[in-house]
Nucleic acid binder design. Structure first.
Ligand SMILES: [Mn+2]
Ligand SMILES: [Mn+2]
Ligand SMILES: [Zn+2]
Ligand SMILES: [Zn+2]
Lengths: 149, 149
DNA sequence: AATGATATTGAGACTTAATTGCAATGAAAA
DNA sequence: TTTTCATTGCAATTAAGTCTCAATATCATT
């Protein structure tokens, strides 16, 4: 929490936008998640915290948080778009279990370097990337193997 | 075209589903695209080819084509979901220009191997993955550099 | 502290991708 | 052919996300 606030405020100042209490509350709510979240979950969290912020405001705040680098879009699971707080977090990619929904985060330096190489080969200037691997987590794979026996 | 038809027919037979003329036309239309396409484009292509297939049928056919491995979901660009014909095509990942929308396909054996390694380390059984790198293509980067001078 | 320019808000209407119910139709096994 | 059941088109429906607009809040300036 500490200075994500500050980072957001500076970002808004640069853009000549105002740091309203609604935006503060949205940021606070985001930092109380310890996993990916979607707009609906954020809306409910805000209500739990006693702040009734309209969906419209949430939808309008999200692009600002994305631009300021405080959150990132996570893998489109099913229908809804979900997000992830990345303030002061190291970049990582995801393994997603298609059976139970579990998400395992990983970081592989060599994959990252190879991506840079690929970009250079194509004279492409990367801004961001996303690597998502879907499959079965250990537990789910065991279960499924048993069932099909 | 040649035996994607056959593959689809076999898939449908296995599932005890029928190979209707509508499904044939949808498959044919998909094979006349040489790039990613979305449902609306598919609908229009079908009309061009003289086949009026309802959107509902298209939406119902797509999951079957996905399951049978004939197409795959491409990166969510903006709002609409788009798809890509992958019959008899080698797996590849994408560089997407956030300025002009150009898509560059690439394949990097070492990245693929490293992904497998990551999965093993987590006892994760991969089914599919997607790696998308967003950034600026050569042309767009040049343009933007000029403008900001 | 008061002013004023302008950004922001909430509510609900609106847009649009995707899904669904249903009666009519079609495929294909028997 | 007959019979069974999957499939189709249409229109109604759902739901994520956007937009409009009048009322309000922020903040630089006085
Ligand atoms: Mn990565
Ligand atoms: Mn790959
Ligand atoms: Zn699992
Ligand atoms: Zn470009």
């Amino acid at each position: 929490m500490i200075d994500a606030d500050q980072k957001f405020e500076e970002f808004l100042k640069l853009k000549e936008l105002k740091y309203t209490s609604e935006r503060k509350f949205v940021l606070k709510a985001i930092f109380s998640f310890h996993k990916h979240f979607d707009v609906e979950e954020l809306f409910e969290k805000l209500r739990e915290q006693g702040n009734h912020i309209s969906r419209a405001t949430i939808y309008r705040t999200i692009p600002l948080l994305l631009q300021s680098g405080l959150i990132t879009e996570a893998l489109h699971c099913q229908d809804k778009t979900s997000y992830e707080n990345i303030f002061n977090k190291k970049h990582h990619d995801h393994l997603v279990c298609i059976n139970c929904g579990k998400i395992i985060e990983f970081y592989n330096e060599r994959i990252e370097k190879l991506q840079e190489e690929v970009c250079k080969q194509h004279n492409f200037v990367p801004i961001e990337h996303r690597l998502g691997i879907k499959g079965y987590c250990e537990d789910c794979y065991k279960k499924i193997k048993k069932e099909t026996k």
